[in-house]
């Protein structure tokens, strides 16, 4: 799959993941292999329940596969210590989860700078960087509001700001535009793709939106826990 765009930043080799035990055991991923190069934008597309989020969590080192291997910058993830994994998720990755996961009673700014706080960045720098990214998402005027008082679209933009605030190498976004109107959705997409183009930030986007999927360099189609060719998905973007 190497197309010469860059070095492989993430590589999954025949990964399996199942949930539950005994009779309730359910295999969500049945052997998926994929390679994502530095600076690429990849869309993970598939029906609900096909295993997209599961795959994204594994790629983001939030979870361990039952079988198969994951490589980050060529290093097997099982070789990394908990500390190294934490550092990598904190410094190199940005997350947009399928739900917002905002702390309702904290301010928008406090929510956005959480990764910096974990990294131990000073209060002053946190504020500067937090405000910068909020301005970028046209949310600066809401910085002091409590997260609970935002509209759905505003919350989504806060979540994206939080994912960008640490200038990550890779952004993992689970339905980043799912809750946004077309206009705001467009804004978010433009920001993500401009970062991808200008700074070579790698994008891993889980989406139902065929338009968003089409804007990515590459699409990975998932059905019932397996990667399938584009033609196997009815109504998939060409």
């Amino acid at each position: 799959m190497s197309d010469g765009v860059g070095e492989a930043i993430l590589e999954a080799i025949d990964i399996h993941r199942s949930y539950g035990r005994g009779s309730s055991r359910f295999e969500a991923l049945k052997g998926v292999s994929l390679r994502i190069d530095e600076g690429e934008s990849v869309a993970i597309v598939g029906k609900s329940g096909s295993g997209k989020s599961t795959l994204m969590h594994l790629l983001a080192l939030l979870d361990q596969p039952d079988d198969g291997a994951l490589r980050i910058d060529g290093v097997d993830s099982s070789q990394l210590s908990a500390r190294q994994l934490n550092r990598m998720r904190n410094q190199d990755f940005g997350f947009v989860f399928q739900q917002f996961f905002l702390t309702p009673n904290a301010t928008v700014l406090d929510n956005v700078v959480l990764p910096l706080k974990i990294a131990g960045v000073s209060r002053r720098e946190r504020k500067v960087r937090g405000m910068a990214v909020l301005t970028q998402l046209e949310m600066a005027d809401k910085a002091k509001s409590k997260a609970v008082n935002l509209s759905g679209g505003q919350k989504q933009r806060v979540v994206i700001a939080r994912a960008l605030v640490n200038n990550p190498r890779v952004i993992f976004a689970d339905e980043p535009t799912g809750n946004l109107d077309t206009g705001t959705g467009r804004l978010v997409e433009d920001i993500l793709f401009s970062l991808n183009k200008e700074y070579g930030m790698t994008l891993v986007v889980v989406t139902h939106d065929s338009e968003l999927a089409a804007r990515c360099d590459r699409q990975l189609f998932i059905r019932d826990g397996r990667a399938v060719p584009a033609t196997a998905i009815s109504g998939a973007p060409a």
Partner: peptide, 14 residues
């Protein structure tokens, strides 16, 4: 719980 999960996901150690 979710806040804790989020912090762990973002690299906060146990």
């Amino acid at each position: 719980t979710r806040e804790i999960g989020l912090m762990k996901a973002m690299g906060m150690g146990a």
